[in-house]
């Protein structure tokens, strides 16, 4: 549990970060809260000769709320998310999800930016951000660019971010309607056996919009457009929910691990999704 030797940098600004990344390419990694990367380094599963700490870079830890949008800096911690009352009233699903991540000690250090950027299929924020249709802003030597969360993830630990780029912020529209982040895990601190993020709006008794994403049921988060579409226009009767579940089951691709075999995970994904939909609907 001791990492291989590495060089540690703590630049004072993003220019310094980008210049180091430019110099060392894929031999360098930036570190935010370190709660994914450091364990990987200690297990010697990640070899990072040059480690660039973002803690010294200013301007990355703000939560900005405007009339209809939210901007979260990459260095905002899970605890900051939970602690921010304005954010909790604008987008309560963020607090509901953050409270189900790891444990309080980890949440004091773990950042939202690190959580979404690392590409770990077990992380909760990627699926949540896909559900919220958030946009990730990354910066490189050639300037900034925006990548939709729904197009960010390519494979486990593989994302649309280039090695020389740094994820700096997450923006999203303030979601309307009902919400739920439903997660089953074996114990506190565990990754999801299955988790579902659901946002719904209703008009009268009809579902007007629906957004559904699943966590840790594939090597990337799974945003299921078809599942959302199955609910829109319905009154969320059993048939509609079953159609949404069927759609999600077609999109996920869980693998067996100590949390259980594939058949269990598929069944559980359906149960968790149904519960999330019902809870979101009750809040819509």
């Amino acid at each position: 549990m001791i990492p291989a030797a590495f060089e540690y940098y703590r630049p004072k600004d993003m220019t310094g970060v980008l210049s180091l990344l430019g110099e060392h390419g894929d031999n360098a990694r930036v570190i935010a809260g370190g709660h994914s990367l450091i364990p990987m380094m200690k297990l010697r599963m990640a070899d990072v000769p040059h480690l660039i700490d973002l803690q010294g870079v200013g301007g990355l830890d703000d939560i900005e709320l405007s009339a209809n949008s939210i901007r979260i800096g990459a260095m905002v911690t899970q605890h900051d998310i939970i602690d921010h009352n304005g954010l909790a009233s604008a987008a309560p699903i963020l607090r509901e999800a953050a409270l189900q991540i790891a444990d309080p000690q980890v949440r004091y250090m773990g950042t939202v930016g690190g959580n979404v950027a690392n590409g770990d299929p077990g992380n909760d924020m990627p699926g949540l951000m896909q559900c919220l249709d958030a946009t990730f802003t990354v910066v490189g030597l050639d300037g900034e660019r925006d990548i939709p969360a729904r197009q960010f993830y390519e494979a486990a630990y593989m994302t649309a971010r280039e090695d020389e780029e740094v994820l700096t912020s997450i923006t999203m529209l303030i979601p309307a309607g009902g919400y739920a982040y439903e997660k089953q895990k074996r114990k506190i601190g565990d990754y999801a056996t299955a988790a579902a993020a659901v946002l719904l709006t209703k008009e009268g008794n009809t579902c007007k919009s629906a957004s559904i994403a699943m966590t840790n049921l594939s090597d990337i988060p799974v945003y299921s457009e078809e599942a959302g579409a199955a609910l829109v226009g319905s009154s969320l009767d059993d048939t509609a929910i079953k159609a949404a579940v069927t759609a999600v089951l077609g999109d996920i691709d869980p693998s067996e691990d100590n949390r259980g075999p594939v058949a269990f995970k598929k069944h559980l994904a359906g149960v968790i999704l149904r519960r999330a939909i019902e809870r979101a609907w009750s809040r819509a």
Partner: peptide, 8 residues
Amino acid sequence: HDHWRIWK
């Protein structure tokens, strides 16, 4: 008796 075995 973990979750998946109870489920099983």
